[in-house]
Design a protein around this nucleic acid. Sequence first.
DNA 1: CTCGTTGCAAATCATTTGCAATGGA
DNA 2: TCCATTGCAAATGATTTGCAACGAG
Lengths: 155, 155
Amino acid sequence: VAGAASGGGGRATVDDVVRRLRQRGHRITPQRVAVIREFLGSADHPSAEAVYRVVLLGYPMMAVSTVYSTLRLLVSLGVAAEVGLCANEARYDPNTTNHCHLVCKSCEAIIDVPMGEELLGVVPTGAVAEQSFGAERVMLEVIGLCAACRASGAP
Amino acid sequence: VAGAASGGGGRATVDDVVRRLRQRGHRITPQRVAVIREFLGSADHPSAEAVYRVVLLGYPMMAVSTVYSTLRLLVSLGVAAEVGLCANEARYDPNTTNHCHLVCKSCEAIIDVPMGEELLGVVPTGAVAEQSFGAERVMLEVIGLCAACRASGAP
DNA sequence: CTCGTTGCAAATCATTTGCAATGGA
DNA sequence: TCCATTGCAAATGATTTGCAACGAG
C-alpha cells in the first residue's frame, strides 16, 4: 500500500534503490542490501553506528566503514537525508517527504512533523535571490524537550 | 548605536557578559575575557578552533580546552547559539536575534538572514501541542551553494 | 586562603583512509 | 576476468577529561 515507485516523495523501496544503484553502475553486494533494508525499514532516524549494530546481527562479517559508505551513497541518491542536529553523531533520515523535526535536546529523539507547502513558503526568497544563493534544501527544526523528558524532569 | 543592554536581542557586550558571569559566581580570567571579546567581536560564525587560533596570537599560553569550556558557558548564558550544520565542527553564533541561515555546503559559509515574526509563525504549533513538546528554539536553515561557489563551479 | 580555572597531555569517539583480498557483473 | 567493494586496522580530527599548579575573589 505504502511503497512509492521511483520518482515519488514517500520512502523508497529496497528493490527500487537496488535498481537505481545498478543503473548507476554500482555493485549489489549482500552487505549493501542489508544496510539498505535496515535503513529503509527504520521508523527512526538512525545513526551510522545504530544501523551497523543491527545489521551486524545478521552479518557477523560487517565493517563499520561499509555502513558509512553505503549511507553516503544513499544520500547521493536522494533516498536519505542527513539530519542537521549537530550533536555528535550524524543521523540519517529515510523519510524524504516535506517535513520538519522536533528534536529533543535531552534524549535526542527526533519526531517527524509532516508539512505541506508551508515549508516552501518559509524560504526567505528575497534574501536567497539577493545573495544569488543556490538553495537546494530547507531544514526546519524545533529544539526542545520531548514529553517523556519533560515528565522525568530531564535537563 | 548598536550595542544592546542586558535583556535585548542583538548582541551582548563584553562587559555585559562579564557582569553576568560574575553574578553567576564564575571567575573572570584574562583567558576568558579574551575568548569572549574575540567571539562577540566576530562578524562570523566561528568554530571553537577558529576562536582559539585568533586568541592564541595575543595569549600564547592558551589551551583549546579553555576555549571549548568558555564557549559552552556562553551558550548556557544564552549569548551564543550553536549552529546546527552538523558538518564536522561545531560553529557558534554570536547573533541572538531572530534570524535564519543560508549555509553553503561547499565552503561552509553561513549567511545570516534576519527574520521577524515570520520565523515564529513557522513553528508547527499543532504538532508541538499534540506531542506535548517543550519547544525552546527554532532553527531554519537553507542548504545550498553560495554565489562564489556557484561561480567557481564548486560541487 | 580556597576553590574555580587553567594548561597540558592523554583519552574518547565518530568518521575516514590505505591496502590487500574478494566476489559481483 | 576486472574493478568496485569489502574488512580491517591504523590515521585523523574534534571534543572531553584527569590532574596538578595557579590565581581571582
